[in-house]
Design a binder for these strands. Structure first.
Length: 463
RNA sequence: UCCCCUGUAGCUCAGUUGGCAGAGCAAGUGGCUGUUAACCACUGGGUCCGGUGUUCGAGCCACCGCGGGGGAGCCA
């Protein structure tokens, strides 16, 4: 393998021979020279390759240089020299070029100009070749690695929870059914015999790994999952996907306080890593996508998270004098407008909200002594609201069983989950974080479909 | 699923009261002290999303359909 452009940029230019392979971004010509900018995705910057029109060898490579259009792949040989012009420290004084794959300018969809994100969504196979999507891909990669680093450094074990579940009772939203039955035949016969289906009963794509990961938590203490989750909700928004990646840590012998501390240090650590290791990409997002992004992220690393109870949050909304489309009252779910108001107008940064009414939260959350609230916490951030949702889990057998019954759920569907409380139960807590939402927060991108390579959403599975 | 906006050149958009289809960028050609969102000049480029209707006449008005975007709900 030849060095990547990132690796070449790390060298000291002293006239050594280099080979550059990548995709041509732009070509500029003057009477005396041809400038090619080449990118290979290893870093944000393009490397400038200069062809001297006055050199004796130029005539021989001129025809090949003609084919060097935006989007073409090329191999360029030359020497690495300090650049005499401002704009880059290094450049390649090129001796030869070979076009590997042409990209005819009259048909290649990407031009050497800015394209709208909407247009690029329809060119999902080519968009990683743009500044924006290259930067998103690098940040996504670094953040995925940072997730593992964060947990591994703290003694967490990575658990692979199943993507297919035969339990239709996870309760976190509409599910995609998985079947090997012939739907066409069923439509004709009019009956479904699930005993003949692959699993012998209805099966679905998971909406969350939480219930499964709790079982490993109750054996290994610190565990986490990081994998895809699927929701068949008909959600058409800039912050929902039908297929997304979710991070779900779970810790035993732990309370809501431990959970909040973990979540806060998790966010802080990831933002810090992005600022340190993706500085060039974040500078681009700050300049072209979300002005002020880097300063906001630096504030997150430096500052503390504000924290209120749900009850205090409702009070703050009521006393704000702000007109809301949905009038807040104790017991209501916090609406988008409420979350945005609290994070953007009241605290100007991330906000931890705890102790929600039990009626608007999931059955597995630990019930507080007041009989009204649960030990839940959400972390809300400016721009789009909830980024993390977590809780201490109800670890007491009798209270969990009663809650399941009160909500009209069938305890048979949860027999193994309930069993965890029957044998060696411990107080434990965890949270879920949508990886793409984290990326929205860190990159300043505003549509979740732009921070995953191939977005899946209602009527959207074209690539 | 609901509400709003939108669809015109390869891309981003303008298009007046209903009266000859426009610009910038991109592309092509030529020029140009090492350019870097290069610059200068010229050239080519149109199923005005589709259908129906109103009208002497529709890019523009009405209705239906399709696509795109934003907001809401649901949630991560």
């Amino acid at each position: 393998m030849i060095p990547t452009i990132k690796e070449i940029f790390s060298l000291k230019a002293e006239g050594q021979a280099v080979t550059v392979r990548g995709w041509i971004r732009t070509k500029r010509q003057t009477k005396s020279a041809v400038f090619l900018e080449v990118n290979d995705g290893s870093c944000f910057a393009n490397i400038q390759c200069v062809f001297d029109q006055g050199s004796p060898a130029f005539q021989a490579i001129a025809p090949e240089l003609e084919k060097a259009t935006t989007g073409a792949s090329a191999s360029i040989e030359g020497t690495l020299v300090p650049s005499p012009a401002t704009g880059q420290k290094l450049e390649v004084s090129a001796r030869s070029i070979q076009i590997i794959g042409e990209a005819p300018a009259d048909t290649y969809p990407l031009q050497k100009k800015a394209h709208s994100l909407e247009f690029l969504r329809e060119q999902a196979h080519l968009r990683p070749r743009t500044n924006t999507f290259g930067a998103v891909a690098r940040v996504r990669n670094r953040m995925a690695f940072a997730v593992h680093q964060f947990f591994q450094e703290r003694g967490f074990q990575y658990v692979h929870t199943p993507l297919i579940t035969a339990s239709d009772a996870e309760g976190a939203g509409a599910m995609f059914q998985v079947t090997t039955l012939d739907l066409q035949k069923i439509a004709q016969s009019g009956t479904v015999d699930y005993e003949k289906d692959f699993f012998g009963k209805p099966a679905y794509l998971t909406v969350s790994g939480q219930l499964n990961v709790e079982t490993y938590c109750q054996a290994m203490n610190r565990v986490y999952t990081f994998g895809p989750a699927f929701r068949a909700e008909n959600s058409n928004t800039t912050r929902h996907l039908a297929e997304f990646w979710m991070i779900e840590p779970e810790i035993a012998f732990a309370t809501l306080e431990d959970d909040i501390e973990l979540a806060k240090s998790f966010i802080t650590q990831l933002v810090k890593t992005a600022l340190e290791d993706c500085a060039e990409d974040l500078a681009f997002f700050d300049a072209r996508i979300q002005p002020g992004l880097v300063a906001d992220l630096q504030k997150v690393v430096a500052g503390s998270f504000y924290r209120v109870t749900y009850t205090e949050a409702i009070d703050a909304l009521l006393k704000s004098g702000q007109e809301f489309e949905f009038k807040p009252y104790w017991g209501c779910d916090l609406q988008s407008e409420h979350e945005k108001f609290l994070t953007e107008k009241v605290v100007g940064g991330p906000l931890v909200v705890t102790d929600y009414p039990k009626d608007i939260k999931a059955f597995y959350m630990k019930q507080n002594d007041d009989g009204k609230t649960v030990a839940a916490m959400d972390i809300l951030v400016p721009r789009f609201g909830e980024i993390i949702g977590g809780s201490e889990r109800e670890w007491r057998l009798d209270l969990l069983e009663k809650r399941i019954k009160d909500l009209g759920l069938d305890s048979n569907n949860y027999w193994w989950y309930i069993d965890l409380r029957r044998y060696g139960s411990t107080p434990h807590a965890g949270f879920g974080l949508g990886f793409e939402r984290l990326l929205l927060y860190i990159t300043g991108m505003t549509n979740i479909r732009d921070v995953i390579p191939f977005p899946r959403a209602p009527k959207l599975a074209g690539f």
